[in-house]
Design a protein around this nucleic acid. Structure first.
Length: 892
DNA sequence: GCGGACTGCTTACCT
DNA sequence: ACAGGTAAGCAGTCCGCG
């Protein structure tokens, strides 16, 4: 890469000194010298000096501190870091002492700027022009540019009077937040260890164990040098120690007399209880004193395993609480951005607690702390990439209850009363429990979540607050921006790529989608014995790497690459330069597949090391899994439709070729979806042949993913049942497993699966059929006799948007409206409504109001029928036969 | 003015 | 605010029909 116009252009930044731009252009140098007399710059330089003295003189030397975040301080006009000092277990601040300044880039020359854009020099924040060479990947050429340096970020962009507004269409990198830009330029990596000496911040050197280094170098020995070159840098990210961070979780309860979620802005009700749980084992409850406490409430309070402190007045309680919280480097909440912190803050203001004693800072949609870091776990677990890739969909809704019961295997204590009429001791207990669960969500499995956050920070270069609050596209954007700067590549303006490369060549199957996606093979209906499922190991990332796909390499500017066509499309891929996405995504994929994934399972390693590998591979998985998707998403600043389209087109090509190969070997493909093929009864040799073929011809790893004793397919795609050799069952897409299916149907379905899992040979299906018949008959009988509870009969459907945004009136929304009208209970976006199908005109009743006797038995029968049919179809059993109705052949 | 065919909306799932 | 593909149930509309 270095001799291809990449790294050689990189200008090394000297920490602790003012950065110098080297240029061969003597003319420009002269201009620079002239400029140095510019008063503004002198002023700026003076400021720098005074700032350095002011802010960093008192910074003591620190041996080891974990970089948590980088921010900008408007008062001192400096970027600063928050670090966690391992020795004192507290937050320390480090302010920039390198004289780094905000800037934007332009493709205009200084001459043009001075002749046509004089207003820039007159701008209040203007400091200087600096010529700079950047590398433009899209045209694959170096580019002479000018850096416009300003005194503060707002002068660069973000207001109507910013410099960038003066050079519309000619500004670059101007929308990057200053503290991010600073982080990129200084090569700071959040989540890594630093030390401070003589006021300067430097990375702690990481030693990678020799044997690991050798193993990895060996695993990568056949890769292109561009990939090998990156290896050491990435290894540091994964082998730098992950310290445990001192932290506290808290939760508040508010007094209210009605069953309503308290109004955060008004903050009218008193805060009566605040609980705390910290990483040192402390549990505390602050309670507002109530003189009417009953004896049993006093007794109840005594039983709680926590230090309880009573406060006479609410102001004191809140003051004490915010003081306590403010001592911690990390403060954890569950939905604290939307409730606990704003409520506490507004309440504190109402009680006339002076602003300088309130350590909360309000942002557009979050709250931070003046000193420490606020982590809102609700937002972290809400992140789809985390939910799906890291926790494999273990929790389906984002409530503290559902996340903790899935991850901690322990939900909340059941409370029978509504929160507003809980007794005092129960309220305290309930409050403490929330803090405890919140804390434990960060501590379970050896601090898994904290470690995950830290590794993700290292990979994405994002501060901890951003990792926990922003989505995957922001993560990948930041990773890519960092790597662009690192290599001195020009970061393309958002929309620029899509203006150049936006034409889709394929048509999506789904209306409204932009391009064609994956291929799904029509299943061969029936039961198939000894089915081997082969799948490509992370297909799309492999495709991106092997075919060198990237926003700049797909439809690159070189004539000679045009013949390197992407199958099923008119697009081509570059043959001259390794694409940045191919490099970064390929590297993460390779590290995961070739090393960390296997090592995470290697029993010969120590549990600690295995645990590290587990977390590293999970973090990589999160990034890799989303890497293809973001390039097909308009909101992603490096959005490139042809690249996304090429990726899925090659994916289709790979699976199509594989099917052809399988069939040419005389084998039968039963089913396949995107990256998998189900093969009926292949020999070991045949499997090996296929795997070798794929490696050699497609350049993509094909693995045996699973082997079924038998798999049962109807004609439906994404819908099958597979029984492993050991009797375990894989159920995919079947209604019986869907969350919204009533429990009584789910349970009957489970019984049927249980019967099927015991089938070993085709002959045994006759017996299974009889048992299934019995199950269904029994369900029908119980249904008719109203033997099921309303809970068992309820459909449970998520409300995915505000009630008034629905264009039609689906049943679950009808039920929600009835519940609101009749009971005043509001169920909004993000929650799940429970309802029964009834015979009244509305056709539905919310669970709370439903009577089992009113249910629409025919509707329920249909549900049972369709749920069972999906499996029975596969077994070639007619549902009517199961129901006991006489089938045609019995009449004859 | 009624019913079946059809389209579109919504949710939950698969990769 | 990562992508597209599939199934299922229901709401609403269109069209034909003396």
């Amino acid at each position: 890469m270095s001799n291809k116009g990449g790294l050689d252009l990189f200008i090394k930044y000297n920490k602790g000194k003012k950065s110098e731009i080297k240029t061969e252009n003597k003319e420009i140098n002269k201009q620079e010298n002239l400029k140095k007399q510019d008063n503004k710059q002198k002023e700026a330089q003076n400021k720098k000096v005074s700032n350095k003295v002011k802010v960093n003189e008192e910074v003591k030397d620190v041996d080891q501190a974990l970089l948590l975040s980088v921010d900008y301080d408007g008062k001192s006009k400096l970027a600063f870091c928050r670090l966690y000092d391992l020795k004192t277990q507290s937050i320390i601040f480090w302010f920039d002492n390198t004289g780094h300044k905000p800037y934007l880039l332009t493709d205009l020359s200084i001459e043009e700027l001075d002749s046509k854009y004089q207003k820039i020099r007159e701008h209040r924040g203007f400091l200087e022009y600096q010529p700079i060479k950047k590398y433009d990947l899209i045209i694959d050429k170096p580019k002479d540019m000018v850096k416009i340096v300003a005194d503060d970020p707002l002068s660069v962009g973000g207001s109507r009077n910013s410099i960038r507004e003066l050079i519309k269409d000619h500004h670059f990198e101007s929308a990057i937040l200053y503290h991010r830009s600073y982080l990129y330029d200084q090569h700071l990596i959040p989540g890594m260890l630093y030390y401070i000496k003589g006021g300067d911040l430097r990375p702690v050197k990481i030693e990678i164990p020799e044997d690991i280094k050798n193993e990895l170098e060996d695993a990568f020995k056949n890769e292109k040098h561009e990939f090998r070159y990156e290896l050491p840098k990435y290894l540091e990210l994964f082998f730098s120690p992950i310290p445990s961070i001192k932290r506290i979780a808290f939760d508040i309860e508010v007094k209210s007399i009605i069953n309503k979620i308290p109004d955060v802005t008004a903050a009218e009700d008193s805060v009566i209880c605040i609980s705390f749980v910290d990483s040192e084992g402390m549990k505390k409850i602050y309670l507002l004193e109530d003189h009417n406490l009953k004896d049993e409430e006093r007794e109840g309070l005594k039983k709680i395993d926590a230090i309880i402190e009573f406060y006479k007045d609410e102001k004191e309680l809140i003051e004490k609480a915010i003081n306590l919280v403010n001592e911690y480097p990390i403060v954890i909440t569950y939905n604290g951005d939307n409730f606990d912190i704003p409520y506490l803050m507004n309440r504190a203001k109402k009680l006339k607690i002076p602003d300088n004693k309130i350590p909360f800072v309000r942002h557009r949609d979050s709250y931070s702390l003046t000193k420490g870091i606020h982590l809102d776990l609700y937002k972290f677990f809400f992140n789809r990439a985390i939910q799906v890739s890291a926790f494999s969909n273990a929790y389906k809704t984002m409530s503290l209850e559902s996340v903790s019961s899935a991850l901690l295997k322990e939900g909340k204590i059941e409370i029978e009363e509504e929160i507003f009429d809980l007794s005092y001791d129960k309220l305290a207990e309930y409050c403490l429990q929330d803090s405890e669960l919140t804390y434990r969500l960060t501590s379970f499995d050896n601090d898994l979540v904290m470690k995950l956050l830290i590794i993700l920070m290292r990979i994405t270069k994002l501060p901890i607050e951003d990792i926990s609050r922003s989505g995957i596209s922001n993560w990948i954007k930041n990773l890519f921006y960092y790597e662009h700067r690192y290599r001195n590549y020009l970061i393309p303006n958002p929309n620029y790529i899509s203006q150049v490369k936006s034409q889709a060549a394929t048509k999506a199957i789904i209306k409204g989608k932009k391009y064609m996606g994956a291929k799904v093979i029509d299943p061969v209906p029936g039961v198939h014995f000894n089915v081997v499922v082969l799948d490509f190991a992370s297909l799309y990332p492999s495709v991106i790497k092997e075919w060198n796909l990237s926003y700049e390499t797909v439809n690159c500017p070189h004539k000679e690459c045009r013949t390197n066509l992407i199958p099923n499309t008119p697009h081509w891929a570059c043959t001259k330069r390794v694409g940045i996405s191919a490099l970064l995504i390929g590297l993460l994929r390779d590290l995961r597949v070739k090393y960390f994934k296997n090592k995470a399972k290697d029993k010969s390693l120590s549990p600690e090391l295995r645990n590290l590998f587990k977390i590293v591979q999970a973090s990589m998985k999160v990034i890799i899994n989303a890497a293809y998707g973001v390039f097909g998403s308009e909101i992603f600043p490096l959005y490139c439709l042809p690249m996304a389209e090429s990726t899925s087109a090659i994916g289709r090509y790979a699976i199509e070729q594989t099917i052809k190969k399988v069939e040419s070997m005389g084998l039968k493909v039963i089913y396949g979806d995107t990256d998998s093929v189900f093969i009926e009864n292949p020999t070991k040799e045949q499997i090996k042949e296929l795997i070798d073929w794929s490696n050699k011809v497609l350049g993509i790893e094909l693995d045996v993913e699973k082997t079924f004793r038998f798999s049962a397919h109807s004609t439906r795609k994404k819908n099958y049942l597979g029984v492993y050799k050991d009797g375990n069952v894989d159920i995919k897409g079947l209604s019986g497993k869907k969350r919204n299916t009533p429990l009584f149907v789910q349970n009957a379905f489970k019984e049927m699966i249980n019967v099927l899992s015991k089938v070993n040979r085709p002959e045994e299906f006759e017996q299974a059929k009889k048992e299934i018949k019995h199950i269904v008959k029994n369900v029908f009988k119980k249904l008719k006799n109203y033997e099921y509870t309303p809970e068992e009969l309820a459909f449970r459907v998520a409300i995915t948007k505000p009630i008034d945004k629905y264009t039609v009136l689906p049943q679950h929304i009808k039920a929600a409206k009835i519940l609101k009208d009749k009971k005043g209970v509001e169920i909004g976006k993000g929650s799940i409504i429970y309802y029964l199908k009834t015979r009244d005109p509305a056709g539905v009743q919310p669970l709370e109001l439903a009577n089992v006797k009113d249910i629409d038995i025919d509707k329920y029968k249909e549900t049972i029928e369709s749920t069972f049919e999906q499996v029975l179809d596969a077994l070639d059993i007619d549902f009517d036969e199961i129901k006991g109705k006489k089938t045609l052949d019995k009449w004859m």
